[in-house]
């Protein structure tokens, strides 16, 4: 037995050494994504110096922000072993809700913002209740919500986008605070808040427990249904926020806004090392996944690679990331 008591430390048999080597490999594999992001950025900087300008960094960040919020919500859902396909159409529903209010009552901006977020929250809450209490598979429940929310978004505008919003609505997304746009600040705050929640609070720990082994969590007294309901509600609210930001950026709202965003968000989470079966993944990982996708899109744009080739590249990227993950998992278990 090379297993040593809790406190006893470093040296040990051959086995321990082997574990250290394993740990180093794991460490490398775990940070592989960070290295890849850096490598990609360095490559673009060398071939196109304009990549590394402040202006371009701003572009990347502002483009990432609405995605980031969705990906954060998705991370929580995926950690419980679920999936939320409805976030893209919740973006549209929230944007349309806010816009519909603002266009009639230009003076009630705050109400517009709150309404957008609350609508997202409610949509997520419904999915969460259906998943947690009626035991409908998350894929099915949120697929249903995708359709419902999208339909509602079209209904609000009677099939058309809402234009003619007051210019002030654009201030939300375009105001700078200490030189940084508000959406970027919201994104950074989102990462920090959720990062802390997932590592420092009992709520975060319970999310991991539910995803890692639902039955065991139940036996340990975790309110599994409550946890499940809340992650979908959080995901919905974050999608709502994303919708508000997007509509503010273009000072209008369209029912097709955010279409397909759910897949991009899922990709970011998965590239970040989360397991779709739940229990494994981190907020930090999602952030890396997100920035890999965003950096790549931006850099390929600068290189004038056509959009369709970009799509091919991101497809390959997703599968490679998961493949690397499988190898890592095998190493650390075997």
């Amino acid at each position: 037995m090379a297993e040593v008591p809790v406190k006893a430390g470093e040296p040990g048999g051959k086995k321990l050494l082997q574990f250290d080597k394993q740990r180093t490999t794991n460490l490398l594999l775990r940070n592989l994504m960070a290295l890849v992001v850096i490598a990609v950025a360095v490559y673009f900087t060398i071939v196109r110096p304009q990549f590394a300008t402040t202006a371009n960094m701003r572009t990347i960040l502002i483009a990432a922000a609405p995605f980031a919020l969705i990906a954060l919500g998705q991370t929580l859902v995926i950690l419980t072993g679920g999936i939320d396909l409805s976030v893209g159409s919740i973006v549209a529903l929230s944007a349309m809700t806010s816009a519909a209010i603002i266009v009639d009552h230009p003076e009630r901006m705050v109400l517009g913002v709150i309404a957008g977020v609350v609508v997202g929250l409610l949509a997520g809450l419904v999915s969460g209740v259906v998943v947690a209490y009626i035991n409908v598979a998350p894929f099915v429940a949120t697929l249903g919500m995708l359709s419902v929310a999208s339909g509602l978004a079209y209904a609000i505008g009677r099939g058309a986008p809402i234009n003619g919003l007051p210019v002030e609505w654009g201030l939300i997304a375009n105001t700078r605070f200490l030189g940084v746009q508000v959406p970027v600040l919201v994104m950074i705050a989102g990462f920090i808040v959720l990062g802390v929640i997932m590592t420092r609070t009992s709520f975060g720990m319970r999310i991991y427990a539910v995803g890692g082994n639902r039955t065991a969590a139940e036996v340990a007294g975790v309110n599994v249904r409550g946890i499940l309901t809340s992650v979908y509600a959080i995901s919905g609210a974050l999608a709502g926020m994303s919708g508000v930001i997007l509509s503010s950026r273009v000072i209008s709202a369209a029912p097709y806004l955010g279409k397909g965003y759910e897949l991009g968000a899922i990709a970011a989470v998965v590239i970040g090392g989360a397991s779709l079966t739940g229990g494994r993944g981190t907020v930090w990982g999602t952030m890396l996944g997100l920035f890999l996708i965003q950096t790549l899109n931006n850099g390929l744009d600068i290189l004038v690679v056509p959009a369709y080739w970009q799509t091919v590249i991101s497809g390959i990227l997703i599968v490679s990331a998961v493949a690397v993950d499988m190898v890592a998992a095998k190493r650390s278990s075997g």
């Binding site: 009992s202 720990m205 319970r206 991991y208 427990a209 890692g212 082994n213 039955t215 065991a216 969590a217 139940e218 036996v219 340990a220 007294g221 975790v222 229990g279 494994r280």
Partner: peptide, 21 residues
Amino acid sequence: KGAGLVPSRSVLDNGSLPHLR
């Protein structure tokens, strides 16, 4: 394995789950 532990989490997390409060 099925009902007692969360294998993907640490001894610390598993050890503190039931009396987390």
